[in-house]
Design a protein around this nucleic acid. Sequence first.
DNA 1: TTGAAAGCGCTAACAT
DNA 2: ATGTTAGCGCTTTCAA
Lengths: 335, 335
Amino acid sequence: MKYATIIDIAHELGISKSTVSRALGGDDRNVNKETKKKILEMAEKMGYKRNELAVNLRKQSTRTIGIVVPEMLTPFYMNFITYAQQLLNRQGYRVTLAQSHEDPEAERANLQMLEDYRVEGILISACHNRKNLDVYQQMINNGIPLVFFDRTITEISVPKVKIDDYIKSFFMVEHLIRGGKKNIVHFAGPTYIENAIERKRGYKDALEKFHLPYNPENVVDAGVDFADGEKAVEELIRKGISFDAIFCFTEMSALGTKSCLQRLRYSIPGDVAVCCISGTNLCVLVHPSLTAVEQPVRQMAEAASRLVMEKIENPSIPDETVLLNAAMILRESTL
Amino acid sequence: MKYATIIDIAHELGISKSTVSRALGGDDRNVNKETKKKILEMAEKMGYKRNELAVNLRKQSTRTIGIVVPEMLTPFYMNFITYAQQLLNRQGYRVTLAQSHEDPEAERANLQMLEDYRVEGILISACHNRKNLDVYQQMINNGIPLVFFDRTITEISVPKVKIDDYIKSFFMVEHLIRGGKKNIVHFAGPTYIENAIERKRGYKDALEKFHLPYNPENVVDAGVDFADGEKAVEELIRKGISFDAIFCFTEMSALGTKSCLQRLRYSIPGDVAVCCISGTNLCVLVHPSLTAVEQPVRQMAEAASRLVMEKIENPSIPDETVLLNAAMILRESTL
DNA sequence: TTGAAAGCGCTAACAT
DNA sequence: ATGTTAGCGCTTTCAA
């Protein structure tokens, strides 16, 4: 069905569309009170719906911010999105979401799409630290501020908000060791994700601190997905490697790891502790309660939202890096 | 920064913008191969980005579908969104998301917003069975098909996809009884959500079947949120009601319930089983593994996506109700 | 195969 | 306080 336009209203009332536009736009000083009332009533009566497409096109501004995440199945990203959306809405920005499904190609397509819709800024958790550098750079050149959160990149200068993955990883492994674990396996993330590199470093250094042997066999390239976790467990078993703890890179791979182990009749965390570090500075032994992650995630969402709005309003401010460092929360779950 | 437009390209090449438009629109028969090549190259060189706002405005079509959910913190809705997005994208539709945060006012605002952006259809899980009937009806009248999923409404005729909440609830309680539970408390959802009414009915009838006394005190009006679950537990304790199982309405309230009980040093599910029914026909004893819900949710997303696309293409087809009825999966979790 | 022109619905000078 | 006008960037007849 066709919607009534301001022209229709103007016709109906025998006035000009500018006046209608002013009235509907909430202009109080440049339109007669009487006229305004009439217009509002007629708009109501005709079922007028402001066409945001036309408005945005004309105003050359969308007040829309895009959020790009690798996945939306994990509480971390869901929470981030929810908070960011709240904060941005409050400042008059709309939010458009896109998932990359851990695929750089999809991420690239998503970014292009968001640019086509003329978003004014983007919050992104990258799924590859090199593959899309050209798009990032191009968008920034085009005047669209990109703010990276959680999965950040180092090759180009951008505003970012992240945790210290090295420290968190170190502490996590230390915690396992103090808990009596002797054979700690690391299901490392891909080297194209900065966080994965840092966490692996933390793992190594923690072992060293306690004079535990670093065995390359104990580090498995395990990817990021649920299925990746499952496969890594199978590899471990096939190779006959013994283990009493597995430190995974992503929450999804930790879930896959746990699921596979349980299928194989391991008791968790009795026989083997499965753990990971969620996007914030929260360490979890699978699975985190939803609320537990709220606070740190909220901080991240706040920082990222602030950064992108600042950049939009003042493109020339220098790129800021926010390193979140709230106290670490260690939760043990018996799931 | 300003983007290059088709006019800029046309100028640069000394041709008309119509030709540029045709070439960029992928028209192969009405534009010379040579010219097209030139145009594509120039577009690339000038960093041309098609302005979707202008396209949509001109074409009077957005190929966009809105999804409105009460919350996005629970795996159910996130999964639904992920699947629906995949399916719809495949058919050339974009997806815009909105959360109501369980608030009918916010839901109303969301719907208005989506209409302002001229979405061509909407998938919605309603947060109130009466409060927004007028908006629903109005949007339908305006030619925007609304498809309800999971939280459906009965007062107006709409296409919907849902599970049989009564049966699922009945089975859930039966399962608890067979598991030896004697004092099963129901944290009922609000009466303005149809599913809550149905589930309460299932709860009652199951008790009756096993000749267990139905005690009104055992049914607590417990809302939908995490905090609601916590409050309900406190009320239970304050009233000195004994219980060995709690059957919650939403996953969020179940999580709150569990959290509160654990704070009070109850062992779960040792002392008390906490359970709920997720949006699909999957019953969970808190907390569901992410993958476990995939299949049923996927069915729901498939059905809902199909319904909305059918309605868009042929507005006159009758409202269909899809009742999902895959085998029930009962999962017990020791979280 | 290309171009000219109209117009999608709206806003914002500028003029009255 | 209101009207006139000129676009925003694009598609799509209709002519050439």
